[in-house]
Design a protein around this nucleic acid. Structure first.
Length: 855
RNA sequence: GGGCGUAUAGCUCAGCGGUAGAGCACUCGCCUUACAAGCGAGGAGUCACUGGUUCGAACCCAGUUACGCCCACCA
């Protein structure tokens, strides 16, 4: 074995071995008694490639699934991709543009073929990247939201919702992207504060209105004031002339108007503003569309054909010429909606669209969490979930795109409209709606459509409901809430998952969001290549505090790489010394053996509990410390003496070494699958760790006495090392020493202590001696006259002062009647122990000071 | 505008009633036959501020300040 672990040389080979052996494949019939464990992957966009967010999300899911698989569950992690309507259509349209073509040049069918072709060639790059990460997904069950089966699920549920009156078509104001040329749902619009201009316009001598979108005045069909606003009471019910158009529009009274804001009079443009649309509905106002789908002015007149921004300036200029602009135009920061996919400013627009009536579905989705049938992890995020599901607007599901599931509604003679389910025959002469469904419509079915629904399949029976949904809190609304709605609806009230485990966003080392413009984006593949998949995963998991964002930095990845290397070298040492896992543990164990086995079982219990509780940071932390600080730094070092002794002692040590490594590797395997597989198979000679058993904590191995002995041994060794370091003694320099260990439980460890401290046997003569009473034993070191007495005295005096302060504090506390009367017994005892320890320290330190040679 | 959250060592974060912890960074000493991707030793924090509750507060309560996030139909 080389002295350094080279991930690149083992990862590809191991992944290939795992998949060809079918180790990740679930089988609904394998063992009917085994509980099922299911995770469906949040399907990445077919346009996507692996970023740190995915790497985190997948590391978590893989950890959960691998642990369950080791525990004997029938574990299924189902992979797949989302067709990502707008995103994908945009990509392919961009490609076409390079060839000087638009989708209209191809026509609908040819364009769709083109997208499928693109999907075959470059879509799904992310699936290959998932293999690099080590995802233990079942590739035999890979799904795509546009698959035949999943499409049938979409049509089936559409038909059911339609028949239940939960899907309707209506002319409503919706968010419109003038670049993508489609409607968007509320959550596909991102709001950001932008500097705009608030223009005050004098409609008449009495009526001044303000707007940031002056061009929309061309579509005004009223001015609204608050019903109780006395300034305007005389105008309500009258008509005024709308400048630039000559149209006469009414003044209406509406509660929505805030009399405190501006002049208290509002222009009303029902066709291009959501509020105004509602005012229009309430007062029966006409809705006058003045902007087309490209956001160009359609209203006849001088502005016709202008882009909205061009028109905005032109309208203001025209009004200015008429002297209708009040005062100066002032800068105004306000929130502006942008298309999530292309960042174009969204234009509210009235149009005929399809909607899901969400009220009953959202109610059920909320209740499932309220009643505890679905648990949100961490629970603090539940309030956000409720805020969303309890206040949801109807969901606009139609998109004016070509890539997606086409709406299964046909229009027949006489304007009749009918929904045809899968397999139903559409009569001659009927034409299908040209819109497709929002991409989230099909992803909402993912937890059951992937398992075969609407058919009653063995997979669906065995693996639904899924066990846990793992995703970032950013798509709680986009996706999670909608899966809840559709899952409960389609599966007759059975929730799609039992736990929603939300994680944070990956950020840079200063907690900043990763973005191309900041230049702080880290590519997980880059880390995988330089540090290995395990180090990449471990870094992410180690930062994954429940609910918190996950900062990552280059140095932390190096630290994880170093940790993998540490495991590598520990195993190398163990194998070089004949460590093994054959047979039972020896009946006769040394104290250090008992200690490490005791600690091991505690750590196994902790790790298990932390993963169970989705606290991956703590699981990693516990293993990191145990493996490095306790096992490598102490047990391994202490084992060198018994190993050298040979015989039964050495044999017992080899067995314990093998035992601890075996267990640690299995505990780490869900987080760092590759290095653990490589080392574990070498150590045990077995086929694979993937289906090895998950370690259970053996409480019978708990041994507080052994832990106490090792703790004092560690204190002794540390104290002497401290002395040597303070004294500037060469670390390789052998020092003669007498250890007076008689009667101490450490007596059995004299050899190890000498070895750790590089002490030789007591010499013939002591020239200058430092005496270190530690833990009731005395160490006399012959430092060949090299003692810096002043430095040692300063050091001891500092420690002495600290000990005296401690005594003062604790004894003061114990003298406080209130404290003694009210504090719990355990706390009082702790203080007593602390006092005793400090008093012992004082005795020891005073003795050490007294023993110092005159200097 | 509403809601939620966070302020702890240089950085990123744990701790959430009983005398402050980790990783990285830093200082000093070491190529000690598992590992220099390493080993040993060490320094470093009035736990944002102000009050309150308590025998005892980083932790609970109130307020202040500063950040962050989510939602929203702020013309």
């Amino acid at each position: 074995m080389p002295t350094q672990y080279a991930p690149a040389e083992v990862e590809g080979k191991l992944y290939e071995r795992w998949t060809s052996a079918g180790l990740f494949e679930a089988d609904p019939e394998r063992d009917p008694d085994a509980p099922a464990y299911t995770i469906v992957i949040p399907p990445p966009n077919v346009t996507g490639s692996l970023h740190m967010g995915h790497a985190l999300d997948h590391s978590i899911q893989d950890t959960l699934v691998r642990r369950r698989r080791m525990q004997g569950y029938e574990a299924l992690w189902l992979p797949g991709m989302d067709h990502a309507g707008i995103a994908t259509q945009n990509v392919v349209e961009r490609e076409l543009k390079k060839e000087g073509l638009t989708r209209h040049d191809l026509g609908r069918e040819a364009f769709q073929e083109r997208v499928w072709q693109w999907k075959g060639e470059s879509g799904g790059r992310i699936l290959g990247q998932m293999k690099r990460l080590g995802d233990s997904v079942d590739w035999s069950r890979e799904r795509f939201t546009m698959d035949e089966g999943l499409s049938r699920a979409v049509l089936t549920i559409f038909k059911r919702l339609y028949d239940d009156g939960l899907i309707y078509r209506a002319e409503r104001i919706i968010n419109w992207c003038p670049r993508c040329l489609t409607a968007l749902s509320d959550i596909e619009v991102e709001h950001a504060d932008r500097e705009g201009e608030l223009v005050s316009i004098r409609y008449t001598d009495d009526v001044v209105v303000a707007t940031t979108r002056a061009e929309t005045m061309l579509g005004d069909t009223a001015v609204a004031v608050h019903p109780s606003d006395e300034r305007y009471a005389h105008l309500v019910g009258t008509e005024i002339e709308l400048p630039l158009t000559g149209r006469r529009i009414p003044v209406v009274a509406d509660e929505h108007v805030d009399p405190e804001f501006g002049t208290g009079a509002v222009k009303v443009t029902p066709a291009h503003d959501p509020n105004d649309f509602e005012i229009g509905q309430r007062h029966g106002l006409p809705s006058l569309t003045v902007l087309d789908e490209h956001a160009k002015v359609t209203a006849e007149g001088p502005f016709q054909g202008m882009d909205r921004y061009e028109a905005r300036a032109a309208v203001v200029e025209a009004l200015r010429e008429q002297g209708r602009i009040v005062k100066e135009i002032r800068p105004y920061e306000h929130s502006v909606g942008h298309c999530q996919r292309c960042q174009t400013v969204v234009e509210p627009r009235v149009s005929l669209q399809w909607f899901v009536k969400v009220a009953p579905l959202a109610k059920a989705a909320g209740d499932a969490v309220r009643e505890g049938r679905v648990q949100i992890q961490p629970p603090e995020l539940s309030s956000r979930y409720f805020a969303w599901v309890d206040n949801m607007h109807d969901w606009c599901i139609s998109r004016q795109l070509w890539w997606g599931h086409r709406i299964p509604v046909w229009y027949g003679p006489g304007g009749e409209q009918r929904c045809f389910g899968p397999g139903e025959e559409v009569p001659e002469g009927w034409t299908q709606d040209t819109d497709v469904l929002d991409t989230w419509f099909s992803s909402a079915l993912w937890p059951f459509s992937t398992l075969g629904w609407p058919d009653d399949t063995p997979d669906l029976r065995r693996f639904y409901p899924t066990s846990v949904l793992v995703t970032g809190y950013d798509i709680l609304f986009f996706w999670v809430a909608r899966m809840m709605m559709f899952g409960l609806y389609a599966m007759d009230g059975v929730e799609p998952f039992k736990v929603i485990a939300l994680h944070g966003m990956v950020r840079d080392q200063h907690g900043k969001k990763m973005s191309k413009s900041f230049g702080n984006v880290v590519d997980p593949l880059d880390w995988i290549e330089r540090y290995g998949a395990d180090a990449t995963r471990f870094t992410l998991l180690r930062g994954a505090n429940p609910g918190g964002d996950v900062p990552v930095a280059e140095e932390w990845a190096q630290g994880s790489r170093n940790f993998c290397n540490k495991l590598w070298n520990a195993t190398r040492f163990a194998l070089m010394n004949g460590a093994h896992v054959k047979g039972e543990l020896p009946a006769e164990l040394s104290t250090t053996d008992s200690w490490i086995l005791s600690r091991l079982q505690t750590v196994a219990a902790e790790v298990d509990a932390h993963i169970e509780g989705f606290d991956f940071a703590k699981a990693c932390e516990a293993l990191y410390h145990f493996a490095w600080d306790e096992f490598c730094d102490w047990y391994l070092e202490l084992s060198k003496v018994p190993l050298a002794e040979g015989g039964a002692t050495a044999e017992a040590t080899r067995r314990v070494l093998g035992e601890v490594l075996d267990t640690v590797l299995r505990l780490l395997h869900p987080m760092t699958p590759f290095v653990t597989e490589e080392l574990w198979t070498a150590l045990t000679g077995r086929e694979t760790i993937v289906r090895a058993s998950w370690p259970a904590a053996d409480t019978a191995r708990a041994d507080a006495a052994a832990e106490a002995v090792v703790a004092s041994l560690q204190r002794l060794v540390t104290e002497v090392r401290r002395f040597r370091s303070d004294q500037g003694l060469k670390s390789g320099q052998r020092v003669t020493a007498a250890l007076e260990l008689d009667g101490s439980p450490l007596a059995a460890y004299e050899e190890q202590i000498r070895s750790l401290l590089k002490l030789t046997a007591p010499g013939e003569s002591f020239t200058a001696t430092a005496s270190l009473p530690v833990e009731g034993v005395v160490v006399r070191l012959d430092t060949a006259g090299a003692i810096d007495v002043a430095a040692e005295r300063a050091r001891l005096e500092k420690d002495l002062a600290a000990a005296r302060k401690e005594v003062a504090q604790t004894s003061g506390k114990l003298a406080n009647a209130d404290f003694v009367a009210k504090a719990p017994e355990a706390v009082i005892n702790k203080n007593r122990a602390r006092l005793e320890a400090a008093q012992a320290d004082i005795t020891r330190l005073e003795a050490q000071l007294a023993a110092l040679p005159a200097g």
